[in-house]
């Protein structure tokens, strides 16, 4: 039976780490020198064991386990990247048409010494935050705000950096009433109009239409354990077999990994994560993401505005796999 959450999958590791913390506390309090030495010696061995276990666990991560890591509560979210990589960020809100969305955030910031426009999905870490962020499922106003920010980026010639991390766009009645489909399509289309470079980084879940609405970028990068899919695996299982609980099986069938996306030419680069995932050593993950954005921006900077657009069109135009039958 496959694990259902990232914590469940890492449970043995978490237990071991808890034990190490306890052992350290015990060693600190120990008065008898010989016992203290013995404990400390054992702790070193436990830590070696922990590192080995961690390496083994992450040396062969299955497709479903990637889904769990991508969804992990501890994983760095958009605002964590914003804090770590950007300065001068001011969040701009509202679609200027009566609605505000908290699942997509955005605003101008300084990156590597230059102004950029950030747009990204934001998840929550506790029940209160999750509700406030609507589980990072954006409503139409989220995409309409994104369009507003894309237009502003074009006006002030700022590259667009989008951070993608959503299970899906919001499927509720409110969203349908206000045209969630149109909002996604219009946002996708707006990204193709941009003559400034754009870079999308899939940092967690790249959930179908909800993701593509802010991911039609000049360069699309994926973190090693992020996933990018046409449908959540549980949704796929619900449609195919009417059994959402067969998500792990559907995850394998959907080939929603970074490797698969790259093999079909749908993304430009896989960004390696530290051993144990981005959540274990976020500082390393932040550095990797920063270096990658700097590198790709430098390449895109060499293009004229017309070339930036042509390059983006050409990139997406090629996507698809089919046969040509001779008659």
């Amino acid at each position: 039976m496959s694990a259902k959450t990232h914590n469940e999958w890492e449970s043995e590791l978490i237990e071991l780490e808890k034990f190490i913390v306890n052992a350290k506390e015990r060693a600190r309090k120990e008065q008898v020198a010989s016992d203290k030495a013995l404990l400390e010696d054992q702790i070193v061995k436990l830590e070696v064991g922990r590192d080995k276990f961690l390496k083994a666990l992450y040396s062969n991560v299955g497709d479903w386990e990637k889904v769990l890591i991508a969804r992990a509560e501890k994983r760095p979210y958009t605002l964590d990247y914003v804090t770590a990589l950007f300065q001068d960020f001011v969040e701009l809100q509202g679609d200027r048409n009566g609605f505000a969305d908290n699942a997509i955030i955005g605003g101008p910031a300084t990156f590597d010494g230059r102004p950029v426009m950030i747009v990204g999905h934001q998840k929550g870490r506790n029940i209160h935050e999750r509700q406030f962020r609507n589980f990072a499922m954006a409503k139409p106003e989220g995409y309409r705000k994104a369009i507003r920010l894309f237009e502003m980026a074009e006006r002030y010639q700022m590259p667009v950096i989008s951070l993608v991390d959503t299970p899906a766009a919001d499927p509720g009645v409110e969203s349908e009433s206000r045209g969630i489909s149109e909002a996604i399509a219009a946002s996708t289309m707006k990204m193709f109009e941009l003559s400034v470079p754009s870079i999308a980084v899939i940092i967690g879940e790249g959930g179908s239409g909800g993701a593509i609405g802010i991911a039609a970028a000049s360069r699309v990068l994926m973190l090693q354990y992020s996933v990018y899919s046409v449908i959540p695996p549980e949704g796929c299982a619900a449609i195919l077999w009417r059994m959402p609980e067969r998500g792990a099986e559907a995850a394998r069938a959907l080939k929603l990994t970074a490797e698969s996306a790259q093999s079909f030419g749908l993304i430009d680069e896989i960004l390696p994560e530290p051993i144990g995932g981005a959540h274990r050593t976020p500082i390393e993950a932040f550095a990797t993401v920063k270096d990658a954005i700097v590198k790709h921006l430098a390449e895109l900077d060499k293009m004229s505005p017309a070339e930036v657009r042509a390059d983006r069109f050409a990139k997406f135009r090629k996507m698809g796999e089919f046969e040509t039958v001779l008659f």
Binding site: G209, A211, I212, A215, A216, Y228, V230, L266, F316, G320
Partner: peptide, 23 residues
């Protein structure tokens, strides 16, 4: 909707066709 059986390739058809509308 998108064809699940072609995974992310199907999702990218959304971007590709939308880009064509833009043109």
């Amino acid at each position: 909707g998108a064809r699940m059986q072609e995974g992310l390739l199907s999702l990218m058809q959304m971007a590709k066709t939308t880009a064509a509308v833009q043109q």
